[in-house]
Amino acid sequence: MKVLVAVKRVVDYNVKIRVKSDNTGVETANVKMSMNPFDEIAVEEAVRLKEAGTASEVVAVSLGVKQCQETLRTALAMGADRAILVETEAELQPLAVAKLLKEVVAKESPDMVLLGKQAIDDDANQTGQMLAALMGWAQGTFASKITLADGKAEVVREVDGGLETVSVNLPLVATTDLRLNEPRYASLPNIMKAKKKPLDTLTPDELGVDVAPRLTTLKVEEPPVRQAGIKVPDVATLIDKLKTEAKVI
């Protein structure tokens, strides 16, 4: 079977992000970028499926600016076989990404698409679900375990109340949660091999997708600075404050 993995280039999780002075977004100039950590988990899962002999080919796809090539090279160094970049300077919202991925899926016909459950930049948590809906495919989101057998997949999902196991038919869109696996770091020989692996570039126009944003960002602001807590002398005061000030009881 063939697995398609979507990877997003985001501000590195170690970077302390700053809001742009004109409040239009987050500062990304001269900021270290890397692969969305949930997508690393998706790549790892796909590569493990290949190592186990379950998957025959792993294709990594990224959508966005030219520099997403670096993110794809990371995926290739982790073990993906080839990569596709849908290159655009346009702002991509989840629906546009899902539509683009649908067209890539139509070209590639994978049996499974793996994505991170969300990206750590906008935390939208929408792309996987939208893609499954657009394709009319089964979905297994927030996966902490994926077992494949006989054209079916058993996905253990991390839900609010604990774990839920769903059994679905392939083809499948799965989104990865934190506990699915621990991604490997690329070895030096694999980083060197990744430079020679094929990386194809497409454009939204070639795929016939209108990526114009449907949502408008009005304003991006820093969260308010947290106020220091207070100490109360006794339980009675605490209860009183919870009732009259915090109004939670």
Partner: peptide, 21 residues
Amino acid sequence: MSDIPRLVEAHDDIRDAVRKL
């Protein structure tokens, strides 16, 4: 990460992987 050309290759991909390790 700087875009200024260096006298030798910067090896950013290798640096990233080493930092992860």
